[in-house]
């Protein structure tokens, strides 16, 4: 029985992998690929925030601005200095990590909703820097004419080609994320979320891990920013705000707080729904609000909890079957 499940699992993984590989060819038009690329970028954001918030309990609501730090770093390096993609991407990540670490400093003094407010304020202040420092950032008009990457002579000049870059980054982000949350770092994160004082007494260097949590979400946001800037070739400050952080937060909540698959499910679900529900315009947003409340009240663990419940039900059902059989045999 177990073996069959395992084989089925591998078949499923393979099928998904194949689907992901050929996706640009089976898409009906370029717009669809663009949407998928967008999903990839939001996926990075939601993975990063889920690690910081869902695991470590660190409210990093400056995420929107950190995303902007990544995007502006890449855009400026690219347009002003002509730094190529494979160098400006890591530099954007580093820039966002450093800023994120600073955003995390208040977590030494304040916690829970106070920390949420402090990070919101810091994020909005950073956004205002983007808006006001016109000579550098282009102000409210933003930065245009960003080149799409050219990797070692091979131009990545359309959505289909860019898709593979995003795919690699998302897979990398997921695998690294799993490695982070699955072992020592993840346990330390959860320890400081579950019981801060007890974590200290167990030798967890809480200050270090708090900053690390912020830095990790910063790294994901930085990567997402660099990818976003070079995908859209144009950026402006209005998307790098608290609102974006809220959207990511909603994705995590719907998918499952403290679960990486939850991040994936939530992000894909919300963005795909977003495309299909465009016809309803504003009513769609009202529906979002209702969905959030329904999830909070009736499914606080998100969609993955639903899957978990189903799995435990299936286990019990299987256990019941085998037990029934052995009972029958015994009888």
């Amino acid at each position: 029985m177990k073996k069959i499940t395992r084989i089925l699992r591998w078949i499923l993984i393979l099928a998904v992998a194949c689907l992901m590989l050929v996706l640009p060819w089976i898409a009906q038009n370029r717009y669809q690929v663009h949407i998928v690329n967008n999903i990839g970028i939001w996926l990075l954001l939601s993975l990063g925030l889920n690690i910081a918030m869902g695991y470590a309990g660190q409210y990093n609501l400056a995420l929107g601005a950190l995303w902007g730090v990544g995007a502006y770093t890449a855009a400026l390096l690219q347009t002003r200095l002509g730094v190529p993609f494979w160098i400006n991407l890591p530099l954007s990540i580093i820039a966002a990590v450093i800023i994120a670490a600073f955003v995390g400093l208040p977590s030494f003094k304040v916690r829970s909703h106070y920390l949420a407010l402090v990070t919101i304020a810091l994020g909005e202040a950073m956004n205002l820097v983007l808006v006001n420092e016109t000579p550098i950032t282009g102000g409210a008009d933003g930065i245009g004419h960003i080149q799409m990457p050219n990797l070692f002579g091979f131009p990545i000049n359309n959505d289909e080609r860019y898709y593979y870059i995003i795919l690699i980054m998302v897979i990398l982000g997921y695998v690294v994320g799993r490695q982070i949350v699955g072992h020592r770092i993840g346990r330390a994160f959860r320890a400081l979320r579950d019981d801060f004082q007890a974590a200290r007494a167990m030798g967890v260097n809480t200050g270090f891990y708090q900053i690390l949590a912020f830095a990790i979400s910063g790294a994901y946001a930085g990567a997402a920013g660099a990818l976003y800037a070079q995908l859209n070739t144009y950026i402006s400050p209005d998307i790098f705000t608290f609102n974006s952080a809220l959207i990511v937060l909603t994705m995590i909540l719907v998918g499952g707080m403290g679960s990486l698959p939850g991040s994936v499910v939530g992000t894909v679900l919300l963005l795909v729904l977003n495309e299909y529900l465009q016809v309803f315009q504003r009513w769609q947003l009202v529906g979002y609000g209702i969905a959030i409340i329904v999830v909070v009240l009736f499914l606080p663990g998100g969609v993955v909890e639903l899957a978990r419940k189903f799995e435990s039900f299936r286990q019990r059902w299987l256990a019941g079957l085998t037990k029934g059989k052995s009972d029958a045999e015994a009888g």
Partner: peptide, 22 residues
């Protein structure tokens, strides 16, 4: 939990804002 509470009230705000926009 604080986080859930926060999100639910944000969701409520979302509903009101968009309802009034409509």
């Amino acid at each position: 939990d604080l986080m859930l509470m926060l999100l639910a009230t944000i969701g409520l705000g979302f509903i009101l804002d968009n309802l009034f926009t409509i």
